[in-house]
Structure formats: C-alpha cells, structure tokens
Design a protein around this nucleic acid. Structure first.
Length: 469
DNA sequence: CTATGGCACGGATT
DNA sequence: AATCCGTGCCATAG
C-alpha cells in the first residue's frame, strides 16, 4: 500500500515520467482531446459516470463531497482551497462545427481564433467558400492579420481575385472586427466602416487613417495637423477617438480600463484552465482554486476488462495485458499531473494572493526555479506546467499563468501611475530616480522599454497630450 | 548637452 | 540548445 501511494507521487519509469510531462504541459482543451484519444484507442480504460453536487451543480471528484459547498468553515481563511474540478460545464458553450471544415486546413489544437471566426460566418458561406475562408483564417498572424496576400490565394486556388476579396470582406466583419485584413490600416478602416453603421464617426479620423497612416503610427501629430490643415487639438481628439474605438490588431483585445493602445495588449482567451474565485463569490470567503479537468466523470481502469483477460484466448491475452498496462499507467500519469498542478497552484496562489486580490501593483517577483525547489521537482516541470495555461481571476479577467512570474508587472504599474499623475512630463531618468525612491531599482534603459510596452509616449511627446481640455 | 531608441551581451527561462 | 528579458553602450534627434 505504501508502494501504491508512492507511485502516485514519484514517477518510477521513464515512460511514466515522459507521459506525465506531456500531460502536464497540456491545456484543459488539449487534455480533453488527449483523453478522448486514449479512451478511444484503449479498451481497458473507461469513464465512470458523473456525480454532481446537489447544491452547486459542480461535478464531484472521484471520492467524497463537493469541495466548494462542503468546505468546512473551520478552514483557516488564509488558506486558499485548491482542487481539481472535473467541470464539463465551462466547456459546453464553445462547440465548433468541426465536420464542416476540411481536414487539411483545420488544426483544432493550436488555433482558437480561426475556428471562432469560422463558426460565426459558416452559415453565410456556400460549402465551397468555407474551404477558402478556412484557408484564409489559417494564415493569420497572432495579431489577426493576414500573412499571405489575396493575389497568392487567388493563384493558389485558381479563382478570381474578386472572389477572394469577397470572402475576406465577410471575414473582416466577423468578431473580432477587422480580422483577416492585410494591414493594420485596412483593419482600422473596416472597423470604422462597421462602426459608422451604428453611430456617427468623425470624418477626420477616417481621413487620418486613409491618408495619414504613416504619420499616425509614428505619432507625428504636428505633421498630421499640417497635412490636413487643422489644429493640433483637432488631430488629438481624432486620435483619441481612434485609440478608444479602434484596434489595429484585431486579435488583440484590451480590457475595459482606459489605457493607451498598448502595443502588446493582452490577448483575449476564451477558456481558462484554472479558475480562481472567492467561495460563493463572497469576498469575505477564502479563495477557491479550480483546476479545470474537462472531462465528464472519472477515468479509471475498467474492472470488467481485467476479468475478461482471464477468460480470453492465449494470443489475445498478451495484447490485452499490454492495454491494461497502458491504461493504468495513463491513469497514474493523469493523477500525477493533477497532483503537481494542485501543489503548484497552492503555492502560487498563496504567494501571489495580494496580486490576485488587489491587482498588478502587488505582484511579487518570483521565478520558476524558486517554486521548483520548494516543490522538489525539476524546474522544467514547472516550466511545462506554467506554459500555455490561462487563469481566470476573481475579477473575471483571464490571464496567462506565466503572468504570475512576470517580475516587471508591478514596476510597470507604478510607472503608469506616476506618469498618469505627473504634472510635468517626466523624462526616463527622472522616472528612474522616482522608482528608486520607492525601492525599485531599474535601469534607465529599462524604464524606456516598459514605457513603450505600456504604449506611453516619450516625455517630449506627452507634453501636448496633457492639456487638450 | 539631454533624452531616447537600436544593438548586443549575459543570465534566466523554456 | 534556443529564446526572452534587463541592461550597458553608442548613435541620433531635438
């Protein structure tokens, strides 16, 4: 019995280790696919029926009662509760018409955006056109812009350019609006066009994008004013309109708070792998961390299969024993994965609690290496576990798990604060001094980098933005 | 002369 | 082994 327990915690074979590693690095979505595949190919595995909590309707883990509802109040409110939740619910919304998409243009594991867009426009398109749309959508870069040209596509499929353009037109009008454009300029114009259907738009904004794009991207507002024969102030309000209502990179979305268009605004993620909430959404309650396990029920080795081996013919027996081995290994690996994720999240959440509750300002720097030491696992284990996973915070924001290891986030936040409050444009070196007073030691060059990361103009250009009122 | 952005190096991360 | 990030050095703009 000691042996059995030990195996869960420590991989004994290299196969076990390798597979656990693989599982660890999968997102919830990918994990589901992996499990489905294993389930289909191995008759010794079975999924036993789901058990739901009568109160909150969550799916229950293998044994015992609901980890959320039955949480004893006696538990210290400082301890976050971490558990693995087989919660299919969260995933029920996003079913994708997979069978309608030609195999060769569809990679369900890696791409979320293409299928998202395609599912919106599928009904508008004839069967033959879907193939074309899918092709276009698989040639998007991370910003949602086309990485190929319409001419190339037309040549590739031997169809008229106008046909391709028509498909692109439809794609561009799906969410996120402007997706599938060839350039940022085109994306902005499409957004402007769509916007104009519902409300008036300043004509100047339109003209700036159409004829002054070059100047706009370099933020040369003075030049723009001269070009269009209007005042600097008019340009500024048009720019304000553009940055508040339009997004040159359709695939990037920024969240509600009023901020400059950040060059690398956070991506939007549809489905997190981990949920962090307050128990019953009451901020007084301890934090509850759910690690999403997107299958319905509990995976185990089928006991009937084990019996059946006894009565099977000799030549089959070898194969079946093999299946059995694989099945039990798989279950073990899955447990191993969940165990590691659980310990990891417990550590992260208790360490970064202030950040989770009160925002970026309270992010504490931590490295993966540190955590790997505390948890007594190899650092690559942590790397894999952290990479490509996303977390939903109590405020409903969804961020990559790796953000918990971003040592510059708090400094960047302070930097934003200082610049927002400034009465006189502060130069980068002045900012360095101010940060040093607050106990953050960063190099001047680094401040400049952070500034551009946050999409904040250099001091001499900020001057004009300050008093347009 | 000052403020800033580009390039490259070293250490951490993957 | 490859890549990312913070930083120092240098060229350029104002």
């Amino acid at each position: 019995m000691f042996q059995a327990h030990y195996q869960v915690l420590r991989p004994l074979t290299t196969a076990h280790l390798a597979q656990t590693m693989t599982l660890l690095s999968l997102t919830a979505d990918e994990l589901r696919q992996n499990i489905d595949a294993e389930l289909a190919s191995n008759p010794a595995l079975e999924m036993i029926e789901e058990r739901r909590c009568p109160t909150c309707h969550r799916l229950l883990p293998d044994h015992g009662s609901c980890p959320v509802c039955s949480r004893p109040q006696s538990i210290s409110s400082d301890d976050p509760v971490v558990f693995v939740s087989p919660s299919e619910d969260f995933y029920s919304g996003g079913s994708i018409p997979v069978d309608e998409i030609p195999e060769e243009h569809f990679s369900p594991i890696t791409e979320d955006l293409p299928t998202y867009v395609l599912s919106q426009i599928a009904t508008e398109l004839a069967q033959a056109d879907r193939r074309l749309a899918a092709y276009l959508l698989t040639h998007l870069n991370e910003d949602g812009l086309l990485t190929t040209t319409l001419e190339e596509v037309a040549r590739y499929y031997h169809i008229p350019l106008s046909k391709v353009a028509a498909i692109q037109h439809i794609i561009q009008r799906a969410e996120p609006i402007g997706v599938g454009s060839c350039t940022t300029q085109e994306a902005l114009l499409v957004q402007l066009d769509v916007l104009s259907e519902t409300r008036p738009i300043p004509e100047l904004a339109c003209n700036i994008i159409r004829d002054g794009m070059e100047l706009l991207t370099h933020r040369q507002y003075g030049e723009l004013a001269r070009l269009f024969q209007v005042s600097l102030h008019q340009i500024q309000s048009a720019v304000k309109f553009i940055s508040e209502n339009l997004n040159p990179f359709p695939a990037r979305t920024h969240w509600g708070d009023v901020r400059q268009p950040t060059p690398q605004a956070s991506q939007v993620y549809h489905r997190p792998d981990i949920l962090i909430n307050h128990l019953n959404d009451d901020p007084g309650n301890p934090l509850v961390v759910e690690i999403i396990l997107p299958y319905n029920g509990t995976l185990r080795v089928n006991p009937l299969f084990r019996q059946a081996i006894q009565q099977s013919s000799l030549e089959k027996r070898e194969d079946w024993k093999n299946d059995l081995e694989r099945a039990s290994l798989y279950v073990k690996c899955l447990q191993q994965r969940n165990h590691t994720m659980q310990r990891l999240m417990l550590r992260i959440v208790s360490f970064q609690k202030e950040f989770i509750l009160h925002g970026e300002k309270y992010m504490k720097p931590i490295t993966r290496a540190q955590i790997s030491q505390e948890l007594q696992v190899h650092e690559s284990t942590i790397s894999r576990a952290v990479a490509s996973k996303t977390v939903q915070l109590p405020n409903r924001r969804i961020i990559p798990l790796s953000e918990f290891f971003d040592r510059s986030l708090n400094v960047r936040y302070i930097l934003r604060e200082m610049i927002n409050r400034e009465t006189h444009p502060l130069s980068d070196s002045e900012l360095v001094n101010l940060l040093a007073e607050k106990g953050y030691s960063v190099a001047r060059r680094t401040v400049a980098k952070y500034r551009s990361m946050e999409g904040i103009l250099p001091a001499h250009l900020r001057h004009a933005m300050l008093q347009p009122a």
